[in-house]
Design a protein around this nucleic acid. Structure first.
Length: 261
DNA sequence: CCATCATGGATAT
DNA sequence: TATCCCTGATGGC
């Protein structure tokens, strides 16, 4: 589920639903019991996303750091649902309940730790003040394949395995090309496409990269098999060519040999 | 019932 | 590059 678009959406939803009233915090599973007790009764002052990292600031000088990893979920659920033993953290207040399940990280951290995490990340395409030249600079000087670079959170923050495959498709770029072989125009295009596609994902709550005019249906109403061009597909959504599957950055990636040379 | 896999990343080797 | 962690959906028996 979680690439950067989901984390940004969650930050926004946490702010709007938990507001600044005192929040009830618990760890039904018990693995975050001490942390939850420090948050319990405090107010959520802010929640924000940096790439795939989520930081929630609570009164009492507590910063909650959440990373969902591959399988983690943060879901809004009906209040007073029985708490199973996989719920690491439950936040509730004002009739709203959020359950955190299977996170890679869930800790209380210091402001310094938070700053260090953020400092280690590349520009986040969903943040207004992002500096795309930092991403371009890191790609321009690297011999690594662009497909690996887009997954590296130090290069650009928030892209995951679905977006990297789809962004490179809409840009018409072969994932195996070394970063330093890309032209300035291609680097600019990659950033613009990333911003465009991830904003759509944040708005819809799911990844849709196909062109509504091409599919003949608004992005919000597309069937699952209409949403993507190449990711985990056997044939290119646009031309029907057989998709090629390789491995880059330790993860599987697909590309269309016809559209991405 | 069990094995496998997944939109991630830290750590060991 | 390999291994591990965290959970749940899926598909094969």
């Amino acid at each position: 589920m979680p690439e950067g678009h989901i984390i940004h959406r969650l930050a926004r939803e946490l702010r709007s639903t938990l507001g600044t009233r005192p929040v009830e915090a618990s760890s039904p599973q018990g693995r975050f019991a001490s942390g939850a007790s420090l948050i319990d009764g405090e107010r959520l002052l802010d929640a924000e996303a940096w790439g795939k990292y989520l930081f929630a600031e609570f009164s009492g000088a507590q910063t909650l750091h959440i990373h969902l990893g591959l399988i983690g979920k943060l879901r809004r659920r009906p209040p007073d649902l029985p708490a199973g033993d996989t719920i690491r953290l439950r936040l509730s207040g004002g009739g709203v309940c959020w359950d955190l399940i299977g996170p890679a990280r869930c800790d209380l951290i210091s402001p310094t730790d938070r700053d260090e995490i953020i400092a280690g990340l590349g520009p986040d395409p969903l943040r207004r003040a992002a500096r795309p030249e930092q991403m371009r600079e890191r790609i321009r000087h690297s011999a690594a394949p662009i497909g690996a670079l887009l997954l590296d959170q130090r290069v650009v923050a928030g892209i995951g395995n679905v977006y990297r495959a789809e962004i490179l498709f809409t840009c018409g770029i072969d994932p195996h090309r070394p970063g330093r072989s890309l032209s300035e125009d291609e680097l600019t295009l990659i950033w613009e496409e990333t911003v465009r596609l991830m904003r759509i994902g944040r708005r819809l709550g799911r990844i849709v990269t196909t062109d509504p005019a091409e599919i003949g249906r608004p992005s919000g109403r597309m069937r699952d098999d209409e949403r993507l061009y190449v990711y985990h597909r056997e044939h290119c959504r646009r031309c029907g060519s057989r998709i090629e599957t390789t491995s880059l950055g330790g993860r599987r990636i697909e590309h269309c040999p016809n559209h991405q040379r």
